[in-house]
Simulated scan of single mutants.
Amino acid sequence: MSLKQKPDKPKSELVVLGAQIATNEHDLFRANDLHKLAVERGLATKHDEPAAFLRQKETKRLIEALKTRTVNSQSPVIKAVSTGPMSLRGTYVNRYILLAYAAWLNGDVYLDAMIALDAMSAKHSDNQLSASEKYFRAERLFNEVVARGSKAGTELAACKYTIPAATEALDESAVGMQLQFPGFVPTSLLETVKGKHNRTRK
């Protein structure tokens, strides 16, 4: 007797109102999840389901406008799934329709959805950086840290204070940068700063 495999649950990266919003193979978001969460938190009613939103004239105009602008895209702007496993059914929409639906539901829902979508987009943008882009970003950040540390050291030296742990702190910041950006080697920068520090002491 063979066991039937359960259908895969929709993948999810977007978290709105503290819970996940499922997505499908076209990276569309399941609006039903957003409605359910809003109702559970008292920010919407059961009558505010996606179907009611999609019947609005403004929504229809938005969908038509999006279809016109994405005419060459392989991804639809909206897709209704009414067959198959219950865990996969629902109304899936792109990010713009999801945001419009969130605003239609409640201002708090809209704000949370907008922040969550922005955070997800930023995460994807960072993941798509090439190795060289990550290196140059790390080098730029490290240079900024060194510049701030050098300025602070100069100001303290002018006041005749001592900085017994300045070099150790710089080393620790370098280690932190290497952990954040694997492959980044700040050795030459550190030696330059230490060399200047030693010449100043003489």
Rank of each mutant, 00 (worst) to 15 (best):
Y101C: 00
L34F: 11
K79Q: 04
F142A: 04
M120T: 08
L62K: 00
S132D: 12
S73P: 07
L43Q: 05
S150P: 12
A22C: 11
N106M: 03
Y110P: 00
Y101D: 03
A22S: 14
N24S: 06
A19D: 04
A102G: 01
Q56K: 07
N72F: 10
I78H: 01
L43F: 02
N143C: 11
N143S: 15
S82P: 04
S132R: 15
I21L: 06
R89N: 10
L37G: 05
K60N: 06
R137L: 13
A22F: 08
M120H: 08
S82Y: 06
K46H: 13
A116S: 07
I97Y: 00
V77S: 04
Y92R: 01
S132E: 15
K57M: 08
A116Y: 03
L66Q: 00
A116T: 08
A102N: 01
A100H: 00
S73Q: 04
E144Y: 13
N24P: 10
A65Y: 04
T70M: 12
G107D: 01
I115Y: 08
F142P: 03
F136S: 13
R30C: 08
V93H: 01
A51E: 07
E64Q: 10
Y135M: 10
R69G: 09
E58H: 03
A38W: 02
A52K: 13
V81S: 01
L117C: 04
L141W: 13
S125E: 14
D33H: 06
T59A: 02
A119C: 03
D27L: 15
F29S: 05
A52D: 09
